[in-house]
Design a protein around this nucleic acid. Structure first.
Lengths: 201, 201, 201, 201
DNA sequence: TATGAATGAGGGTTCATTCAT
DNA sequence: GATGAATGAACCCTCATTCAT
């Protein structure tokens, strides 16, 4: 993670954190003004443009930054001494530690289709490296889960990964517009319960 | 459903369909101009304001309209002769028939927090009636699933509902930003598979 | 007056009266919608355009109509058996009878410079005839006032007319933005008092 | 006056002057575009909104600014060595020096009823102070005029003030829509003559 | 380097006008 | 003749971006 943090200047990180703080309560990116971000980051509006070329660039950067953190977190969750459920719990528990995941979700859906396409190919040496490392971590965790009998041996890594990603974003979306109000802690328990139930043999 | 359709003028429905067509490919609401909606709906820009008080009002109206359709569809999925999996398949199969669910998801996350709060309380005689009818339909379907042994008897209706809602929105979010591209049909199969695996005893 | 009334259809008069009613409480012409006028006149919006070519045309027509009334009223005030002060009192008393003068003032200042230029030359056979008749009435009244010793013999008709016009519009303007609130009746007394004091020998 | 000028930034004064220049020739406020004001003030359209919250706010500000100037001018006209007529002449001579009074009149009648109500109560420490100072100046001038025998001792300050205000606005209105064209200088002479004749014993 | 005053392109909204009924 | 649904030109205002300091 420190290597990721090192890749950003303190100013950039301040901007990212400012943006996440603004997006935390479900505010849409389009309703967040550049001035808001600058204020939240504790700097002048003009300074933003010393580090980012546009408002959209801030969005892309912030998402890239946060995803790096999430992936690192996931990678670090690999621990052969823990059960699959325990790994999930630890991962979800720490998920909001660095960056509120609800904010990250809001920002991701705020991206333009072009940005989404771009972020998939961006930083071929960076993001793809992260992805591949995360995939390997995933594979380790899933393999461990299968060995322990927590994951159905017939389910491949793609399905398992899809279940987690889907549950993750589904939770946020459900929060945004659900019939019943859900406590955040309950949601996490629901999440773990759902994933484990889904993947169990 | 006809009762819902009847509650809207042809112009209003044309606007809703125009908006959904524009949102289908993941376009953000903020990047959709009022002129775009008018053009997509086949009418002049000024005409929109004969039926809606603002751009946001179009959004609220469209979401309310689409949700009504989804709920009606779900209610109509109740069929004691079908298995839980079959009901899910039928529901998901028809989900995109009227309004693309991906578009609906995009629009829901495009709502402002204020709109989200408002739509929860709006139309006490309309939306709440729909909700309660859907809840009853849900209860029937889940009860049937439990009777057939497809749903774990220990899981209450809230959990079952949460799983479906979460899977529904998670799918869209996963589409928006996932590592691998997913075919739409595959997603549906994944959806059914996920829900059934999660709820099985 | 009947000849003036006869020159307008009932619809046109309804429109004029509707507009005056709307302008009575100081509302600016630019804030009065065509729909408002139509509603106040008890007809459909489209019908207005059967009788007037534009919103500005309604304004010009209404002013022309009201001015005709005022001039006729003034002409009819000529009465050799009354003192100058009595004539003024009668004129001012009846001023609001047909059309609220405050509304007329508001509408006059709402005219565009082009309209003002146009109305001075409009209806060469109509307005100019009215003007000349009014001038003659003025001359008679002023002459009578001088004969009775109510008007300074050194003041020409232009000055006398200017005093009346100025007092008339000054009253309205002072109403619009004055330090102290003035009762309408008081204003009339003030008006007469001012004019008589000004013109007295 | 410098204290008033100091209360406004140079940009604000530029905007006010730009607006007065546009209104000078009798143009209605509703026909003056924000872009026109910006151009006349020598700045970009967006800059206006750094200093004013709306087009109406520009109007209110300009009127408040100009009225302050007029009141200050009137206050400074107090001079015991001059006759009442001389004071009037000096006041009217300088009236157009800063801001064309015809433009100010046009803008005042362009105000919405709501704005008129608001400006009467606005700036309790500012406008009301100005009003009270002007009232005192008025009282001094009228007292001096009575002492010199230029003003009828039976006329109270309210009547005297009303005569001046009425003459002031009546002149503008008469200009806007009068039978004969009046030279500006002639108007001023007329004004002084009218006021002095009216108030004389 | 950091800033925020200035900018103007762009978009939401209004409303006078038209025309099919 | 009377109507009002439909229209789009026009305008106010926002806010991302720039650049002189």
């Amino acid at each position: 993670m420190s290597e990721i943090e090192n890749r950003y200047s303190q100013k950039e990180i301040a901007v990212f954190r400012g943006l996440f703080a603004l997006a935390k309560d479900g505010r849409r990116f389009s309703s967040i003004k550049v001035q808001d971000i600058a204020t939240a980051a504790g700097m002048g509006k003009g300074t933003l443009y010393e580090y980012f070329s546009s408002k959209e660039d801030i969005l892309s950067g912030a998402i890239f930054y946060a995803l790096s953190g999430v992936m690192n977190r996931f990678e670090q969750s690999v621990d052969d001494t823990l059960s699959f459920r325990q790994i999930l719990e630890r991962f979800f528990d720490e998920l909001d530690g660095d960056v509120p995941f609800a904010a990250l979700s809001m920002l991701i859906v705020s991206m333009s289709p072009e940005q989404r396409a771009e972020i998939q190919t961006r930083g071929q040496d960076d993001l793809k490296l992260l992805f591949s490392r995360m995939k390997r971590a995933e594979a380790d965790i899933f393999a461990s889960g299968r060995r322990r009998g927590e994951i159905d041996a017939n389910l491949d890594d793609n399905f398992c990964g899809y279940v987690i990603v889907s549950a993750l974003f589904g939770q946020t979306a459900a929060h945004l517009f659900s019939c019943q109000k859900c406590e955040h802690r309950v949601s996490k328990n629901l999440l773990v319960e759902m994933v484990c139930r889904t993947l169990r043999p």
